[in-house]
Amino acid sequence: MRPALALVPAAVLLLAGCANGPADSDPDGTTGPTSTVAASTTTPAPTTTPSGTTASSPSTAAATALPTAFTDVNQTIIDPELGQSTAVRRIARQLPWPAGYNASAQAYELVAVEMTWTPSKTYTIPVSKQDFTINTGGTLANAPDNLVDGALTTGGWALLPDSASTGDAVTGWMVFKVDPRAAPKLVLDYKRPASKVSGSSQTFAERTFSITLEG
């Protein structure tokens, strides 16, 4: 079996697309992307299993209020060039905001997407959170947000790692801060970054894959 080939980014500078709109006074916790590409071919990505919606900690208000109704998606993004795939299983809308985020809760919606990432067996370029956004038809993309990750973990929801580049498939949830609240159409975009095979002249151009989540 051939060892996985390392890919390096074609560009050093990456621009973060973050559709969080005008700033308010809330301490919103939108995570920014990183530009690290995994080069190791020996450490497998962590494997998690899809969870239910068990609210096992009644002392955590946000955990007890997590949604129990989901919208099935059951579509898969397949990257034929790299051999990666992302299976989008279902979404949960209107996740509760923590106390103190009243202004944001009026303008934005927290949307959770359950996915299974299957990394390439040939190349080590990762599938990363930073490469996913939700498009509602506006001018800005809606990026992942880790604000309620702790509440989801307490409630028994498995979370996706920041990235996965080798090893087995990994399943979990990712939360997005979406503008506007209650948007009628949600489209998940995965932007595969431009990359180059280490030690060769082979390159892969940037490419965007899209799946309609709702609407």
Rank of each mutant, 00 (worst) to 15 (best):
A19L: 08
I78T: 08
A23F: 13
P44W: 03
R90P: 04
G32S: 09
D189S: 14
G138R: 10
A6P: 04
S57M: 03
D149V: 09
T153C: 04
P80S: 13
P119K: 07
S25T: 13
A65V: 01
A151S: 10
N102G: 13
T124F: 06
A141C: 04
A164W: 00
P161H: 07
S200V: 09
V73T: 00
P98K: 10
E114A: 04
R90K: 15
A112L: 03
M1G: 15
D179W: 02
I125V: 06
A38R: 02
D162S: 14
T68F: 02
V170L: 10
G100L: 10
L14A: 11
W173H: 09
L95K: 03
A19D: 09
L7I: 12
G150D: 13
Q106W: 07
P9E: 09
D24M: 01
S210P: 04
L152Y: 01
W117D: 00
C18Q: 15
P80F: 09
D179F: 03
G138N: 14
S25E: 15
S198I: 02
Y190P: 02
Q202V: 15
S210W: 10
L188P: 01
S51P: 02
K121H: 07
L66R: 12
F70I: 13
T86I: 15
E109D: 06
L7Y: 08
C18K: 11
S25R: 14
P161Y: 06
V148L: 12
E214K: 14
T43S: 03
A6V: 14
F70M: 14
L110H: 10
W173E: 02
T118V: 13
T49A: 05
V8H: 15
D179V: 04
E206L: 04
T166P: 00
A11K: 14
S56F: 01
A61M: 06
K196Y: 07
L188E: 00
V37K: 02
S25H: 12
P22D: 11
V127P: 00
L188A: 02
S51E: 03
S201H: 06
T60L: 03
V178Y: 03
A194F: 11
V12D: 15
A92L: 12
D131N: 07
T171A: 09
R207A: 11
T36N: 08
N74K: 05
Q75E: 10
P44V: 10
A62W: 00
D72H: 01
S56K: 02
A69I: 00
L13W: 12
I125Q: 08
R89M: 09
N135V: 14
S56P: 01
A19G: 15
G155E: 08
E114M: 10
Q75V: 03
G137E: 05
A16V: 08
Q75W: 00
F176G: 06
A38H: 02
I91D: 02
A107W: 11
G138T: 13
S35P: 00
G156W: 05
A103E: 15
V88L: 10
G83D: 01
K177Q: 12
Q106K: 14
S85F: 06
T154F: 01
A62V: 10
L13N: 14
V88E: 01
S59N: 08
A65Y: 05
A87P: 07
P96Q: 06
N135S: 14
T122L: 03
Q75P: 04
G199M: 05
I78P: 00
P3T: 11
L160G: 05
G172C: 11
V187L: 01
T86Q: 10
G17W: 01
A92I: 11
S128Q: 11
T34V: 10
D168V: 06
W157A: 07
S210K: 12
P184A: 08
